[in-house]
């Protein structure tokens, strides 16, 4: 029983990290209509930026904040640089373009940092019953805080209402005075920032390496699709479900099999409900 409780707790930690990455992906699709296959590389960028800042500053938390902001700026600028030129382009063109971005960013990481794993020490020692390491719990809480902050920003602030207006009906929002260009800039920044924060948080656990973005991208993409492309609540529910399911399955099978079962479950959901879980509520 204790083992199950511990795995469920671990599932929450994994789920919130997936959610942080998936939210950025679903925001950028829902509002900018960009299928961003380089989102995993923004996650990688967050981890490397944190490692680089940490080697200069020596403080993990300050490095993580700086890295998330830097990823938001660099990643956001990359998306926006092409958003104007590819306005109205279908998802396939964006997918191909961002696939190329991702490849270039991975190769850049190879060139700049080499193939070896870059690790920093855990910034927090100690354990919490059921949850394991204290750092993992703090990461989970920080992820929840970021998600809550995003929900508040989108739900309650002036900018949030204008962003949702553009997402709902761009032309109606524009003629009411909302600048689509500003909204796009905000969303590109926030999306990359969330991925960068997730990468920064995971650095002391997984270390940084050039292909780390590919693994998170697959899971984030699946939960975004299952959650209903562009649907924030759907992505959150699917992320937590993925984290919990994977963690519980690990009790009875190898981790690689658990991943296969999670992905097969999501494929089944998509076959049964083509719009994903969004249609379920």
């Amino acid at each position: 029983m204790e083992q199950i409780a511990a795995q469920l707790a671990n599932g929450l930690v994994v789920g919130t990290t997936i959610a942080l990455t998936a939210l950025g992906l679903t925001l950028v699709f829902g509002i900018l209509h960009i299928v961003n296959l380089s989102h995993g590389e923004f996650y990688m960028m967050g981890a490397y930026f944190t490692w680089a800042a940490h080697s200069v500053l020596g403080n993990f938390w300050a490095s993580a904040v700086l890295a998330a902001l830097a990823t938001g700026l660099v990643g956001g600028a990359l998306l926006l640089a092409f958003a104007g030129r590819l306005a109205g382009a279908g998802p396939l063109r964006w997918a191909l373009l961002t696939l190329g971005f991702g490849y270039v960013l991975r190769e850049l990481a190879h060139l700049l940092f080499g193939n070896d794993f870059k690790l920093v020490d855990l910034p927090l020692e100690g354990t919490v019953p059921y949850f394991g390491g204290l750092y993992r719990v703090v990461v989970m809480l920080a992820s929840i805080a970021l998600i809550a902050a995003l929900a508040l920003f989108l739900g309650k602030t002036r900018y949030g209402v204008m962003i949702r207006a553009i997402a709902s009906n761009r032309e109606a929002a524009q003629v009411a005075g909302v600048s689509a260009r500003k909204v796009y800039a905000w969303i590109a920044f926030i999306s990359a920032l969330l991925a960068g924060a997730a990468g920064a948080f995971m650095l002391p656990i997984t270390s940084a390496y050039p292909t780390m973005g590919l693994e998170i991208l697959i899971m984030a993409f699946v939960v975004v699709v299952v959650g209903g492309m562009g649907n924030i609540r759907g992505a959150l529910v699917a992320s937590l479900f993925a984290g919990l399911l994977q963690s519980v399955l690990i009790l009875v099978m190898k981790p690689s099999f658990a991943m296969i079962v999670v992905l097969c479950t999501f494929m089944l959901v998509l076959v049964l409900r083509r719009e994903g879980v969004r249609a379920a509520w």
């Binding site: 002036r158 209402v161 204008m162 949702r164 207006a165 929002a173 009411a176 005075g177 909302v178 600048s179």
Partner: peptide, 9 residues
């Protein structure tokens, strides 16, 4: 919110 959009903008 629809009414707030033009005011916020």
């Amino acid at each position: 919110e629809n009414l707030l959009v033009p005011l916020f903008a």
